[in-house]
Design a protein around this nucleic acid. Structure first.
Lengths: 182, 182
DNA sequence: CACTTGTTTCAATAATTACTGAAATTTCAG
DNA sequence: CTGAAATTTCAGTAATTATTGAAACAAGTG
Protein backbone atom coordinates (compact mmCIF):
# COMPACT_ATOMS: atom_id res chain seq x y z
CA UNK A 1 0.00 0.00 0.00
CA UNK A 2 1.27 3.46 -0.88
CA UNK A 3 2.48 5.47 2.17
CA UNK A 4 -0.01 8.24 1.49
CA UNK A 5 -2.89 5.82 1.56
CA UNK A 6 -1.41 3.83 4.41
CA UNK A 7 -1.31 6.89 6.65
CA UNK A 8 -4.91 7.71 5.87
CA UNK A 9 -6.12 4.15 6.41
CA UNK A 10 -4.29 3.76 9.71
CA UNK A 11 -5.51 7.07 11.04
CA UNK A 12 -9.04 6.20 10.09
CA UNK A 13 -8.79 2.86 11.85
CA UNK A 14 -7.60 4.60 14.97
CA UNK A 15 -10.43 7.15 14.83
CA UNK A 16 -13.00 4.47 14.20
CA UNK A 17 -12.02 2.57 17.27
CA UNK A 18 -12.39 5.72 19.36
CA UNK A 19 -15.95 6.04 18.10
CA UNK A 20 -16.82 2.45 18.89
CA UNK A 21 -16.20 1.03 15.44
CA UNK A 22 -13.98 -1.98 14.96
CA UNK A 23 -10.51 -1.02 13.79
CA UNK A 24 -10.39 -3.38 10.84
CA UNK A 25 -13.86 -2.36 9.72
CA UNK A 26 -12.79 1.28 9.71
CA UNK A 27 -9.63 0.48 7.81
CA UNK A 28 -11.49 -1.48 5.16
CA UNK A 29 -13.83 1.42 4.75
CA UNK A 30 -11.04 3.96 4.51
CA UNK A 31 -9.30 1.87 1.89
CA UNK A 32 -12.44 1.57 -0.22
CA UNK A 33 -13.07 5.26 0.20
CA UNK A 34 -9.81 6.33 -1.41
CA UNK A 35 -9.59 3.55 -3.98
CA UNK A 36 -9.88 4.49 -7.60
CA UNK A 37 -11.64 1.26 -8.47
CA UNK A 38 -13.73 -1.26 -6.54
CA UNK A 39 -11.72 -3.89 -4.68
CA UNK A 40 -12.32 -7.57 -4.10
CA UNK A 41 -11.80 -9.14 -0.70
CA UNK A 42 -8.36 -10.57 -1.43
CA UNK A 43 -7.03 -7.19 -2.51
CA UNK A 44 -8.13 -5.86 0.88
CA UNK A 45 -6.49 -8.78 2.66
CA UNK A 46 -3.24 -7.97 0.94
CA UNK A 47 -3.42 -4.22 1.53
CA UNK A 48 -4.30 -4.43 5.22
CA UNK A 49 -2.44 -7.61 6.01
CA UNK A 50 -5.28 -9.21 7.96
CA UNK A 51 -6.96 -12.57 7.57
CA UNK A 52 -9.45 -13.36 4.88
CA UNK A 53 -12.12 -14.13 7.43
CA UNK A 54 -11.60 -10.83 9.17
CA UNK A 55 -12.15 -9.02 5.90
CA UNK A 56 -15.22 -11.09 5.19
CA UNK A 57 -16.75 -10.19 8.54
CA UNK A 58 -15.78 -6.57 8.15
CA UNK A 59 -17.40 -6.31 4.74
CA UNK A 60 -20.51 -7.98 6.06
CA UNK A 61 -20.66 -5.40 8.83
CA UNK A 62 -20.21 -2.54 6.38
CA UNK A 63 -22.99 -3.92 4.23
CA UNK A 64 -25.28 -4.13 7.24
CA UNK A 65 -24.56 -0.45 7.77
CA UNK A 66 -25.28 0.19 4.07
CA UNK A 67 -21.88 1.83 3.75
CA UNK A 68 -20.55 -0.25 0.88
CA UNK A 69 -21.97 -1.40 -2.39
CA UNK A 70 -21.02 -4.50 -4.32
CA UNK A 71 -20.68 -5.09 -7.98
CA UNK A 72 -19.57 -7.87 -10.31
CA UNK A 73 -16.95 -7.56 -13.00
CA UNK A 74 -17.59 -9.45 -16.22
CA UNK A 75 -15.64 -12.70 -16.48
CA UNK A 76 -14.75 -12.70 -12.77
CA UNK A 77 -16.59 -14.56 -10.06
CA UNK A 78 -15.31 -12.38 -7.22
CA UNK A 79 -17.40 -9.67 -5.63
CA UNK A 80 -16.09 -6.12 -5.87
CA UNK A 81 -16.77 -3.58 -3.17
CA UNK A 82 -16.87 0.18 -3.27
CA UNK A 83 -17.82 3.12 -1.06
CA UNK A 84 -20.46 5.58 -2.30
CA UNK A 85 -19.06 8.70 -3.96
CA UNK A 86 -20.87 11.48 -2.16
CA UNK A 87 -19.58 12.35 1.30
CA UNK A 88 -22.93 13.83 2.31
CA UNK A 89 -24.58 10.62 1.40
CA UNK A 90 -22.11 8.64 3.47
CA UNK A 91 -22.65 10.90 6.45
CA UNK A 92 -26.40 10.64 6.09
CA UNK A 93 -26.34 6.85 5.98
CA UNK A 94 -24.12 6.70 9.03
CA UNK A 95 -26.40 9.05 10.92
CA UNK A 96 -29.52 7.14 9.94
CA UNK A 97 -28.09 3.85 11.05
CA UNK A 98 -26.88 5.16 14.37
CA UNK A 99 -30.28 6.76 14.88
CA UNK A 100 -31.99 3.46 14.29
CA UNK A 101 -29.60 1.35 16.35
CA UNK A 102 -28.81 3.63 19.24
CA UNK A 103 -30.96 6.71 19.46
CA UNK A 104 -34.37 5.15 18.89
CA UNK A 105 -33.93 2.51 21.62
CA UNK A 106 -32.79 5.24 24.00
CA UNK A 107 -35.84 7.32 23.26
CA UNK A 108 -38.15 4.41 23.90
CA UNK A 109 -36.37 3.57 27.15
CA UNK A 110 -36.83 7.18 28.25
CA UNK A 111 -40.48 7.21 27.26
CA UNK A 112 -41.25 4.09 29.22
CA UNK A 113 -39.37 5.44 32.24
CA UNK A 114 -41.49 8.58 32.07
CA UNK A 115 -44.69 6.55 32.23
CA UNK A 116 -44.07 5.09 35.68
CA UNK A 117 -45.42 6.83 38.77
CA UNK A 118 -42.59 8.42 40.78
CA UNK A 119 -42.44 6.83 44.25
CA UNK A 120 -40.40 9.54 45.94
CA UNK A 121 -38.83 12.93 45.48
CA UNK A 122 -35.64 11.44 44.00
CA UNK A 123 -37.59 9.57 41.39
CA UNK A 124 -39.63 12.62 40.56
CA UNK A 125 -36.46 14.59 39.96
CA UNK A 126 -34.87 11.80 37.94
CA UNK A 127 -37.94 11.70 35.72
CA UNK A 128 -37.73 15.44 35.18
CA UNK A 129 -34.14 15.08 34.03
CA UNK A 130 -35.02 12.20 31.77
CA UNK A 131 -37.76 14.29 30.27
CA UNK A 132 -35.30 17.07 29.54
CA UNK A 133 -33.01 14.59 27.87
CA UNK A 134 -35.85 13.05 25.92
CA UNK A 135 -37.01 16.39 24.66
CA UNK A 136 -33.51 17.39 23.68
CA UNK A 137 -32.77 14.21 21.77
CA UNK A 138 -36.11 14.33 20.00
CA UNK A 139 -35.61 17.90 18.95
CA UNK A 140 -32.08 17.33 17.72
CA UNK A 141 -32.78 14.15 15.82
CA UNK A 142 -36.12 15.37 14.53
CA UNK A 143 -34.44 18.45 13.14
CA UNK A 144 -31.72 16.36 11.64
CA UNK A 145 -34.16 13.95 10.04
CA UNK A 146 -36.04 16.83 8.45
CA UNK A 147 -32.97 18.67 7.29
CA UNK A 148 -31.30 15.64 5.78
CA UNK A 149 -34.16 15.18 3.39
CA UNK A 150 -32.88 18.27 1.60
CA UNK A 151 -30.60 17.77 -1.39
CA UNK A 152 -26.83 17.73 -0.81
CA UNK A 153 -26.33 21.05 -2.54
CA UNK A 154 -29.04 22.77 -0.55
CA UNK A 155 -27.46 21.37 2.60
CA UNK A 156 -24.12 22.71 1.56
CA UNK A 157 -25.61 26.14 0.98
CA UNK A 158 -27.40 26.00 4.31
CA UNK A 159 -24.14 25.20 6.07
CA UNK A 160 -22.33 27.94 4.21
CA UNK A 161 -24.95 30.38 5.46
CA UNK A 162 -23.41 29.51 8.79
CA UNK A 163 -24.99 30.96 11.81
CA UNK A 164 -26.47 33.94 10.02
CA UNK A 165 -29.97 32.49 10.24
CA UNK A 166 -29.49 32.10 13.96
CA UNK A 167 -28.12 35.60 14.28
CA UNK A 168 -31.26 36.83 12.60
CA UNK A 169 -33.35 35.10 15.23
CA UNK A 170 -31.15 36.47 17.97
CA UNK A 171 -31.64 39.99 16.65
CA UNK A 172 -35.37 39.40 16.66
CA UNK A 173 -35.16 38.31 20.29
CA UNK A 174 -33.51 41.58 21.18
CA UNK A 175 -36.61 43.43 20.12
CA UNK A 176 -36.24 43.70 16.37
CA UNK A 177 -38.83 42.33 14.00
CA UNK A 178 -38.25 39.17 11.97
CA UNK A 179 -38.68 39.85 8.26
CA UNK A 180 -41.66 37.90 7.00
CA UNK A 181 -40.69 34.90 4.87
CA UNK A 182 -43.42 35.73 2.34
CA UNK B 1 -30.50 2.30 43.60
CA UNK B 2 -34.13 2.76 42.61
CA UNK B 3 -35.21 0.57 39.66
CA UNK B 4 -36.19 3.60 37.59
CA UNK B 5 -32.76 5.10 37.96
CA UNK B 6 -31.06 1.74 37.62
CA UNK B 7 -32.62 1.15 34.22
CA UNK B 8 -31.54 4.56 33.02
CA UNK B 9 -28.00 4.20 34.30
CA UNK B 10 -27.55 0.75 32.84
CA UNK B 11 -28.92 1.75 29.46
CA UNK B 12 -26.65 4.75 29.39
CA UNK B 13 -23.65 2.61 30.23
CA UNK B 14 -24.49 0.32 27.35
CA UNK B 15 -24.91 3.22 24.93
CA UNK B 16 -21.70 4.84 26.07
CA UNK B 17 -19.72 1.75 25.31
CA UNK B 18 -21.16 1.63 21.82
CA UNK B 19 -19.90 5.17 21.26
CA UNK B 20 -16.44 4.40 22.54
CA UNK B 21 -16.93 5.63 26.08
CA UNK B 22 -16.00 3.42 28.98
CA UNK B 23 -19.05 1.74 30.49
CA UNK B 24 -18.37 2.78 34.08
CA UNK B 25 -17.65 6.36 33.04
CA UNK B 26 -20.99 6.51 31.26
CA UNK B 27 -22.78 5.04 34.24
CA UNK B 28 -21.23 7.52 36.63
CA UNK B 29 -22.29 10.32 34.36
CA UNK B 30 -25.83 9.02 34.02
CA UNK B 31 -26.12 8.71 37.78
CA UNK B 32 -24.93 12.26 38.35
CA UNK B 33 -27.23 13.49 35.62
CA UNK B 34 -30.39 12.25 37.32
CA UNK B 35 -29.31 12.88 40.91
CA UNK B 36 -31.16 15.51 42.83
CA UNK B 37 -28.05 16.51 44.76
CA UNK B 38 -24.32 16.25 44.12
CA UNK B 39 -22.77 12.92 45.07
CA UNK B 40 -19.44 12.04 46.62
CA UNK B 41 -17.33 9.20 45.28
CA UNK B 42 -18.39 6.66 47.92
CA UNK B 43 -22.05 7.20 47.14
CA UNK B 44 -21.26 6.36 43.52
CA UNK B 45 -19.30 3.28 44.59
CA UNK B 46 -22.32 2.07 46.50
CA UNK B 47 -24.85 2.85 43.77
CA UNK B 48 -22.89 1.25 40.93
CA UNK B 49 -21.21 -1.50 42.91
CA UNK B 50 -17.76 -0.92 41.47
CA UNK B 51 -14.43 -0.30 43.16
CA UNK B 52 -13.43 2.99 44.68
CA UNK B 53 -10.46 3.26 42.34
CA UNK B 54 -12.62 2.69 39.30
CA UNK B 55 -14.87 5.56 40.37
CA UNK B 56 -11.86 7.74 41.01
CA UNK B 57 -10.55 7.12 37.51
CA UNK B 58 -13.96 7.61 35.99
CA UNK B 59 -14.46 10.94 37.70
CA UNK B 60 -11.02 12.07 36.64
CA UNK B 61 -11.93 11.21 33.06
CA UNK B 62 -15.21 13.11 33.27
CA UNK B 63 -13.42 16.13 34.65
CA UNK B 64 -10.92 16.00 31.79
CA UNK B 65 -13.93 16.13 29.48
CA UNK B 66 -15.33 19.08 31.50
CA UNK B 67 -18.55 17.10 31.96
CA UNK B 68 -18.73 17.27 35.73
CA UNK B 69 -18.26 19.99 38.27
CA UNK B 70 -17.11 19.60 41.83
CA UNK B 71 -18.13 21.37 44.97
CA UNK B 72 -17.47 21.18 48.66
CA UNK B 73 -20.06 20.85 51.38
CA UNK B 74 -19.39 22.77 54.60
CA UNK B 75 -18.02 20.58 57.38
CA UNK B 76 -17.20 17.73 55.02
CA UNK B 77 -13.84 17.02 53.45
CA UNK B 78 -15.20 14.92 50.64
CA UNK B 79 -15.61 16.27 47.13
CA UNK B 80 -19.10 16.35 45.69
CA UNK B 81 -19.71 15.93 41.99
CA UNK B 82 -22.55 17.05 39.79
CA UNK B 83 -23.48 17.25 36.11
CA UNK B 84 -24.36 20.63 34.59
CA UNK B 85 -28.08 21.39 34.42
CA UNK B 86 -28.55 22.44 30.85
CA UNK B 87 -28.68 19.64 28.28
CA UNK B 88 -27.61 21.97 25.47
CA UNK B 89 -24.58 22.89 27.46
CA UNK B 90 -23.71 19.27 28.02
CA UNK B 91 -24.05 18.50 24.35
CA UNK B 92 -21.94 21.47 23.42
CA UNK B 93 -19.14 20.51 25.77
CA UNK B 94 -19.14 16.96 24.48
CA UNK B 95 -19.02 18.18 20.89
CA UNK B 96 -16.21 20.62 21.62
CA UNK B 97 -14.10 17.99 23.29
CA UNK B 98 -14.58 15.44 20.55
CA UNK B 99 -13.74 18.14 18.04
CA UNK B 100 -10.51 18.91 19.83
CA UNK B 101 -9.49 15.31 20.44
CA UNK B 102 -10.61 13.59 17.29
CA UNK B 103 -11.71 15.92 14.53
CA UNK B 104 -8.86 18.42 14.66
CA UNK B 105 -6.13 15.77 14.43
CA UNK B 106 -7.96 14.20 11.51
CA UNK B 107 -8.13 17.51 9.71
CA UNK B 108 -4.44 18.10 10.16
CA UNK B 109 -3.62 14.58 8.97
CA UNK B 110 -5.70 15.26 5.86
CA UNK B 111 -4.07 18.61 5.25
CA UNK B 112 -0.59 17.19 5.43
CA UNK B 113 -1.57 14.33 3.13
CA UNK B 114 -2.82 16.88 0.62
CA UNK B 115 0.52 18.66 0.58
CA UNK B 116 2.52 15.75 -0.82
CA UNK B 117 3.02 15.38 -4.53
CA UNK B 118 1.00 12.45 -5.93
CA UNK B 119 3.36 9.86 -7.42
CA UNK B 120 0.80 8.02 -9.54
CA UNK B 121 -2.78 8.01 -10.68
CA UNK B 122 -3.95 6.08 -7.59
CA UNK B 123 -2.41 8.63 -5.26
CA UNK B 124 -3.90 11.47 -7.23
CA UNK B 125 -7.33 9.95 -6.85
CA UNK B 126 -6.81 9.22 -3.15
CA UNK B 127 -5.86 12.84 -2.58
CA UNK B 128 -8.99 13.99 -4.38
CA UNK B 129 -11.09 11.84 -2.05
CA UNK B 130 -9.24 13.12 0.99
CA UNK B 131 -9.84 16.63 -0.18
CA UNK B 132 -13.55 15.93 -0.43
CA UNK B 133 -13.54 14.55 3.07
CA UNK B 134 -11.52 17.46 4.39
CA UNK B 135 -13.87 19.97 2.85
CA UNK B 136 -16.87 18.16 4.22
CA UNK B 137 -15.56 17.90 7.77
CA UNK B 138 -14.46 21.52 7.76
CA UNK B 139 -17.83 22.70 6.57
CA UNK B 140 -19.75 20.61 9.04
CA UNK B 141 -17.66 21.44 12.08
CA UNK B 142 -17.24 25.06 11.06
CA UNK B 143 -20.98 25.44 10.82
CA UNK B 144 -21.41 23.70 14.11
CA UNK B 145 -18.84 25.88 15.84
CA UNK B 146 -20.56 29.01 14.58
CA UNK B 147 -24.04 27.85 15.41
CA UNK B 148 -23.21 26.69 18.89
CA UNK B 149 -22.17 30.18 19.86
CA UNK B 150 -25.85 31.09 19.76
CA UNK B 151 -27.79 31.03 23.00
CA UNK B 152 -29.60 27.82 23.98
CA UNK B 153 -33.01 29.33 23.41
CA UNK B 154 -32.11 30.64 19.98
CA UNK B 155 -30.78 27.21 19.13
CA UNK B 156 -34.00 25.65 20.26
CA UNK B 157 -35.99 28.00 18.09
CA UNK B 158 -33.72 27.33 15.13
CA UNK B 159 -34.24 23.60 15.53
CA UNK B 160 -37.98 24.06 15.88
CA UNK B 161 -37.99 25.91 12.58
CA UNK B 162 -36.97 22.54 11.26
CA UNK B 163 -36.14 22.32 7.63
CA UNK B 164 -38.22 25.29 6.60
CA UNK B 165 -35.13 27.42 6.06
CA UNK B 166 -33.78 24.73 3.79
CA UNK B 167 -37.05 24.39 1.95
CA UNK B 168 -36.88 28.10 1.25
CA UNK B 169 -33.47 27.64 -0.33
CA UNK B 170 -34.72 24.68 -2.31
CA UNK B 171 -37.60 26.75 -3.66
CA UNK B 172 -35.11 29.40 -4.68
CA UNK B 173 -33.10 26.75 -6.52
CA UNK B 174 -36.14 25.75 -8.51
CA UNK B 175 -36.25 29.20 -10.06
CA UNK B 176 -37.96 31.32 -7.44
CA UNK B 177 -36.28 34.35 -5.94
CA UNK B 178 -34.94 34.35 -2.41
CA UNK B 179 -36.52 37.12 -0.36
CA UNK B 180 -33.77 39.56 0.56
CA UNK B 181 -32.81 39.41 4.23
CA UNK B 182 -32.69 43.22 4.42
C1' DC C 1 -21.52 -34.89 -10.46
C1' DA C 2 -16.73 -34.03 -9.12
C1' DC C 3 -13.84 -30.02 -9.04
C1' DT C 4 -12.40 -25.35 -8.67
C1' DT C 5 -13.02 -20.89 -6.86
C1' DG C 6 -14.85 -17.73 -3.79
C1' DT C 7 -17.18 -16.82 0.55
C1' DT C 8 -18.87 -17.49 5.27
C1' DT C 9 -19.07 -19.43 9.84
C1' DC C 10 -17.39 -20.36 14.25
C1' DA C 11 -14.63 -22.21 18.03
C1' DA C 12 -10.08 -21.25 19.73
C1' DT C 13 -6.76 -17.76 20.73
C1' DA C 14 -4.73 -13.23 20.83
C1' DA C 15 -5.00 -8.49 21.85
C1' DT C 16 -7.06 -4.88 24.03
C1' DT C 17 -9.40 -2.61 27.46
C1' DA C 18 -11.44 -2.29 32.02
C1' DC C 19 -11.30 -3.12 36.92
C1' DT C 20 -9.43 -4.10 41.34
C1' DG C 21 -6.83 -3.94 45.78
C1' DA C 22 -2.84 -2.52 47.96
C1' DA C 23 0.19 1.03 48.53
C1' DA C 24 1.31 5.86 47.94
C1' DT C 25 -0.07 10.55 48.14
C1' DT C 26 -2.58 14.59 49.55
C1' DT C 27 -5.00 17.37 52.75
C1' DC C 28 -6.21 19.12 56.76
C1' DA C 29 -7.48 19.15 61.93
C1' DG C 30 -5.68 18.96 66.33
C1' DC D 1 4.27 17.42 63.52
C1' DT D 2 1.11 13.44 63.72
C1' DG D 3 -2.63 10.94 62.42
C1' DA D 4 -6.98 10.32 60.24
C1' DA D 5 -9.73 10.86 56.19
C1' DA D 6 -10.05 11.22 51.37
C1' DT D 7 -8.20 10.43 47.05
C1' DT D 8 -5.09 8.75 43.47
C1' DT D 9 -1.87 5.68 41.30
C1' DC D 10 -0.52 1.52 39.31
C1' DA D 11 0.80 -3.30 38.67
C1' DG D 12 -1.74 -7.41 38.34
C1' DT D 13 -5.90 -9.68 36.88
C1' DA D 14 -10.36 -10.10 34.83
C1' DA D 15 -13.47 -9.29 31.19
C1' DT D 16 -14.35 -8.05 26.74
C1' DT D 17 -13.58 -7.65 22.04
C1' DA D 18 -11.04 -8.71 17.84
C1' DT D 19 -8.72 -11.91 14.89
C1' DT D 20 -7.49 -16.16 13.04
C1' DG D 21 -7.45 -20.79 10.73
C1' DA D 22 -9.92 -24.68 9.72
C1' DA D 23 -13.97 -26.41 8.15
C1' DA D 24 -18.40 -25.78 6.03
C1' DC D 25 -20.89 -23.80 2.41
C1' DA D 26 -22.21 -21.93 -2.21
C1' DA D 27 -22.00 -21.30 -6.98
C1' DG D 28 -20.46 -22.18 -11.12
C1' DT D 29 -17.85 -25.20 -14.88
C1' DG D 30 -16.56 -28.81 -17.71
Amino acid sequence: MKPLIQTFVMHFGEMGSRWGINRTVSQIYALLFVSREPLHADAIVEALNVSRSNVSMGLKELQAWRLVETQMEPGDRRLYYRAPEDVWDIFRTLAEERQRREVDPTLSMLRSALLSEPACEDERHAQQRMEQMHEFIEMLTGWFAEVQRLSPQTLTRLMRLGSSVGRLLELADRGGRLPSPN
